[in-house]
Amino acid sequence: MTKNKYDFSKKTVLITGAGSGIGRAITKAYLDNGANVVIVGRRESALLETVSGYEKERYLIIAKDISIPENSVKIVESAVKHFGKIDVVVNNAAVLVNGEIQDMLLSDWEKIRSINIDAFVYLAQAVYPELLKSKGNLVATSSVSGSFGDWGQSAYNATKHAINGFVRSIALDWGTDGIRVNAVAPAFTKTEMTLGIGNTEKELQPFINRIALGRPGRPEDVAPAVLFLSSGDATYITGTILTVDGGTSASSGQPHIG
């Protein structure tokens, strides 16, 4: 999963949205680099698939809805009770709802806001005392959509703009406490969340035309960046939104000609 090895032995990492896609890849990367992990998601069966083949004593599965405020407190309490501490939090859970604002159902906005924004706030509040003790750090999964606009994604983009704002501001607030806060920002990445997008060569071509490296992202492209930001190699990096986008955001938006 990672070309370089990071020493996460004796570290406890809490990861949300760990049942598929980027969250699953991140979980495996931490396990491969020696960490104990607490993995959170709605479906226990999916979480079990994520940790299949790893020693049971190295992971704790928590199947809970993170959009419910009190669940974040319960998750943190369970993690500390099981492993004794929390060193790293990876706030990865997110949902995507496409559509223009005038057509969006209020229930869709409630869903995307509660998972992408509210759950981030609840977990940050709940885990702060533990990160203060461990002098740990938090890494969020944002998106290049948090820095720019996209057609038909106003709600999703707004939530990712919010995450970027939280990351930068919390990094300032928590910096003197010895806690680092950063984010990774992928572009179009083939995961369960993007099923139905770019499934044929013709549908995929507009995305490829914007990607300097000529292919969509994979979850395995994102995981190493998360490990780096939470590792001892990044001890002077905080408040950063690290793009992991194959060069997508290097473009001015002009079409690829020639």
Results as ranks from 00 to 15, higher is better:
residue 88 V to C: 04
residue 180 R to T: 02
residue 163 I to W: 01
residue 32 D to K: 12
residue 100 E to M: 13
residue 254 Q to D: 13
residue 31 L to T: 06
residue 253 G to M: 09
residue 186 P to T: 11
residue 1 M to I: 00
residue 240 T to C: 10
residue 46 A to G: 09
residue 67 S to Q: 10
residue 37 V to W: 06
residue 62 I to N: 05
residue 31 L to A: 10
residue 126 A to M: 03
residue 46 A to F: 11
residue 55 E to G: 07
residue 243 T to R: 15
residue 114 S to F: 03
residue 133 K to T: 11
residue 35 A to T: 04
residue 66 I to F: 05
residue 58 R to S: 08
residue 69 P to G: 09
residue 38 V to R: 08
residue 67 S to F: 01
residue 93 A to F: 08
residue 240 T to E: 14
residue 148 F to G: 09
residue 169 S to V: 09
residue 85 K to S: 14
residue 104 M to Q: 11
residue 52 S to A: 14
residue 175 G to D: 06
residue 203 E to T: 07
residue 181 V to G: 05
residue 107 S to M: 05
residue 192 E to W: 07
residue 13 V to P: 02
residue 9 S to M: 01
residue 128 Y to F: 13
residue 254 Q to T: 11
residue 120 F to P: 04
residue 44 E to P: 06
residue 191 T to Q: 11
residue 80 V to F: 00
residue 4 N to S: 12
residue 119 A to P: 07
residue 17 G to I: 03
residue 180 R to W: 07
residue 210 R to P: 00
residue 39 I to W: 01
residue 195 L to T: 07
residue 22 I to V: 11
residue 177 D to K: 13
residue 184 V to M: 14
residue 235 T to H: 06
residue 3 K to N: 10
residue 77 E to N: 15
residue 25 A to Y: 01
residue 126 A to V: 02
residue 70 E to V: 07
residue 87 D to Q: 10
residue 165 G to R: 01
residue 63 A to S: 15
residue 97 V to G: 04
residue 52 S to N: 14
residue 105 L to C: 03
residue 61 I to D: 04
residue 236 Y to G: 03
residue 96 L to E: 15
residue 80 V to Y: 01
residue 242 L to T: 04
residue 22 I to Q: 06
residue 111 K to I: 00
residue 54 Y to V: 02
residue 116 N to T: 05
residue 213 L to V: 13
residue 221 D to T: 00
residue 248 T to S: 08
residue 58 R to M: 03
residue 86 I to V: 15
residue 233 D to N: 09
residue 119 A to D: 06
residue 194 T to C: 11
residue 100 E to I: 12
residue 31 L to V: 08
residue 45 S to G: 14
residue 181 V to I: 12
residue 42 R to F: 10
residue 12 T to N: 10
residue 143 S to N: 09
residue 55 E to C: 09
residue 160 K to W: 06
residue 212 A to Y: 10
residue 169 S to Y: 03
residue 166 F to V: 04
residue 92 N to K: 08
residue 177 D to N: 12
residue 127 V to K: 07
residue 212 A to G: 04
residue 55 E to W: 00
residue 34 G to A: 09
residue 150 D to E: 13
residue 66 I to D: 03
residue 27 T to C: 11
residue 9 S to A: 06
residue 25 A to G: 10
residue 117 I to W: 01
residue 239 G to W: 01
residue 76 V to T: 07
residue 185 A to W: 05
residue 157 N to L: 00
residue 15 I to S: 02
residue 68 I to N: 11
residue 131 L to Q: 11
residue 227 L to I: 05
residue 245 D to R: 09
residue 143 S to A: 08
residue 112 I to T: 14
residue 180 R to D: 06
residue 194 T to W: 07
residue 211 I to L: 15
residue 231 S to V: 04
residue 88 V to D: 05
residue 247 G to T: 03
residue 250 A to D: 03
residue 65 D to V: 01
residue 99 G to V: 11
residue 207 F to Q: 15
residue 26 I to F: 04
residue 233 D to E: 15
residue 9 S to V: 01
residue 136 G to D: 06
residue 158 A to C: 12
residue 156 Y to F: 13
residue 182 N to L: 08
residue 169 S to E: 09
residue 216 P to T: 03
